[in-house]
């Protein structure tokens, strides 16, 4: 069966890159692989490869987005995103800070959900104060923050300050254009990690979840 995983993943990747939803559905339904095996051996490596293609400049953001969305929808059909069976501990959430450009959030959310994680979506255009209050209220342990504009990215240091003031030791993972163009910026704003792509964000979340469990 192990040898078949690579074959299934290759077929899925091909379907996703040309946004062939019907073929992607067929790959899912015909694979006969149990859900979490499918995640670990087919979906995760496929989305990781597509994410790497984007970092290398050989796939586009639209392909990354549609791939994540299709996989998320297919996963939801067998494992709803609020299912207790999802990997839900420690509590993880995502938001777009002070901005309505939500594509990055959507891509990361799709990739995490397609990989079996449960993630709360705090939405877009949320202020530092509102986000800090929500994090404290929900006892969120890992918060992913997506930004497009530099001023929003710089506000993450205010969020870090607010969270400390409220006694929350939430791990912050940041991502978005400003962090791609300045590789030191994530440290400057007091984040714990950066995810330049959805794949990197997934790797960081996986690592943090292991550390916190």
């Amino acid at each position: 069966m192990v040898n078949d995983y690579a074959e299934v993943a290759a077929r899925l990747e091909k379907a996703l890159l040309v946004v062939d939803r019907i073929e992607a559905e067929s790959v899912f339904s015909e694979s006969g692989v149990p859900t979490f095996e499918l995640i670990e051996n087919v979906i995760a490596p496929t989305l990781e490869r597509i994410g790497t293609l984007w970092i290398n400049g050989t796939a586009s953001l639209s392909q990354v987005y549609m791939s994540g969305r299709i996989c998320e929808e297919l996963m939801n059909s067998v494992l709803p995103h609020d299912s207790e069976a999802r990997i839900s501990q420690p509590r993880t959430a995502i938001a777009v800070l002070e901005d309505y450009h939500s594509l990055g959030k959507r891509v990361v959310t799709s990739v995490l959900r397609a990989n079996g994680y449960r993630i709360d979506d705090y939405g877009s255009g949320i202020s530092v104060e509102a986000l800090a209050a929500k994090v404290v209220e929900d006892r969120t342990e890992i918060l992913l923050i997506s930004t497009l504009m530099l001023p929003s990215a710089l506000r993450i240091s205010d969020l870090r300050f607010q969270l400390r003031k409220l006694g929350a030791n939430t791990r912050l993972i940041v991502g978005g254009a400003p962090f791609r163009f300045d590789t030191q910026l994530w440290q400057e704003v007091g984040a714990d990690a950066v995810g330049i792509s959805a794949t990197e964000a997934l790797q960081v979340v996986t690592r943090m979840m292991e550390e916190l469990s």
Partner: peptide, 15 residues
């Protein structure tokens, strides 16, 4: 259209 309708909705209609 990214500003008119949001990136996700725009990519959805593009595809």
């Amino acid at each position: 259209p990214v500003m008119q309708m949001g990136f996700e909705a725009y990519l959805d209609i593009m595809f």
